[in-house]
């Protein structure tokens, strides 16, 4: 890998987009199941959805949208040569990711304390559709949480690269791709939020 080798930015970005499609379709499998089970148990889904705390969901939506803004801004900052600013913006993104996960942790704990976890006696006493809802809820948000974690790790890794001058104003595609990944995490949440917190 000689540094003088021509670097194909469009190719690198296109490859990343293709990877994002695979992530989209990975979650797509869960969306298919959600859609099928919602059509089968509409009443139970509404009842179970009312159990979720809208405040947690809304807060996490704000956090992710804002973190997406930070990443987008950091790319512009880096390309304008404001490396320090770019690093701070990325640090803010990672902080948002952690905040999101902490929030999620408290949300899950509250649910579990109320006896709402898979195969719990509380759920077994209710209509079976609510079991499906909470199974889906835990698996989907769990998988999404995993992606938040991965995204945060990727961003930290890019920050190291920026500090080492491997990523800079004339060679930013790694940051751009990491940003694309982070936006995907945000995109998935944009759909999860109404599907789980706003069903009525």
């Amino acid at each position: 890998m000689t540094p003088h080798l021509h670097k194909d930015y469009v190719g690198a970005k296109f490859g990343m987009w293709l990877f994002l499609f695979t992530e989209l379709i990975l979650f797509g499998g869960l969306f298919i199941l959600y859609a099928v089970y919602l059509s089968r148990y509409p009443a139970a889904f509404i009842a179970a959805g009312a159990e979720l705390d809208l405040r947690f969901g809304a807060a996490n939506t704000l956090i992710l949208l804002t973190s997406s803004l930070f990443v987008a801004l950091s790319i512009t900052a880096l390309r304008l040569g404001k490396t320090r600013q770019s690093l701070w913006l990325l640090a803010a993104t990672v902080a948002s990711a952690l905040l999101f996960l902490v929030n999620k942790f408290f949300e899950w704990s509250a649910k579990i304390q109320h006896g709402l976890y898979p195969a719990s006696p509380e759920l077994q006493a209710r209509e079976i559709g609510e079991t499906v809802y909470f199974n889906l809820y835990y698996l989907t948000t769990g998988l999404h949480g995993l992606h938040v974690l991965i995204g945060a790790v990727v961003i930290v890794w890019v920050m190291v690269f920026i500090r080492q001058q491997k990523v800079h104003r004339d060679d930013w595609v790694i940051l751009e791709n990491a940003g694309l990944y982070w936006h995907l995490v945000d995109l998935i949440w944009i759909f999860l939020f109404p599907l789980y917190y706003l069903v009525l």
Partner: peptide, 17 residues
């Protein structure tokens, strides 16, 4: 809800990404 989510994601995809 899905339409609004689609609008939001269109904005994210078009500008942020």
């Amino acid at each position: 809800a899905l339409s609004i989510a689609s609008c939001k994601s269109a904005l994210v995809v078009a500008i942020f990404m």
